[in-house]
């Protein structure tokens, strides 16, 4: 049976609603710290816990696994500080993430575009919460940075930056023409 994306989303929304109860996007305030969650400015404790759990699976990199970088807390700070983009819309995919684990195979088969949405949401968590400036790397001294050195990113140029006369030149003579080689 072919299920359209719209039908699937409707069904998934209803199912998530039924399983997890009313999940209001509005009307929530700053949440005080609890025994397992820090003080949150934007996310709810439940969202925080879920993102934290998923971030370990989605970003199995040392600083995340050993807790040096808290992706969920980064996202909380980022969402709370940033205007305009509809983070609330993005967070709606949290419902699908909850469903995605057990139903991943089925979702891929019946609604591939939704599977792609879930994938994109996971990447959004990685990009915003870990690799981007949300971890505060841009404000840190280069030697204090945790994430960017792991990927070889040098960060923004310092205020006194002046460009070199010439960019680094590649030596074409040592770059094999693989099409020609294969011909």
């Amino acid at each position: 049976m072919f299920v359209t994306r719209r039908e699937f989303l409707r069904a998934a929304g209803l199912a998530a609603g039924a399983v997890f109860g009313p999940w209001s996007l509005g009307g929530r305030k700053v949440h005080a710290a609890t025994f397992d969650t820090p003080k949150l400015k934007f996310l709810t404790p439940s969202e925080y816990r879920l993102i934290r759990k998923y971030s370990m699976a989605i970003i199995p990199d040392e600083p995340v696994l050993n807790g040096v970088v808290d992706v969920a807390l980064n996202l909380d700070g980022f969402f709370a500080q940033n205007p305009s983009p509809d983070f609330l819309v993005m967070l709606r995919y949290m419902r699908l993430i909850r469903l995605a684990g057990p139903a991943e195979g089925l979702i891929k088969r019946v609604a591939p575009a939704t599977a792609e949405d879930i994938n994109s949401f996971k990447k959004m968590l990685c990009g915003l919460g870990y690799y981007s400036d949300a971890n505060g790397e841009a404000e840190m001294d280069p030697e204090q940075r945790v994430v960017w050195p792991r990927i070889g990113f040098g960060g923004p140029k310092p205020e006194d930056w002046r460009p070199p006369f010439q960019e680094r030149r590649l030596d074409a003579s040592v770059m094999a023409d693989r099409i020609k080689e294969g011909a």
Partner: peptide, 18 residues
Amino acid sequence: GRKEVYMLTRIEAPTIFT
């Protein structure tokens, strides 16, 4: 400049997410 996502969310329209 300088901060990638910080600026993206400020100077671009949210149509990128929809």
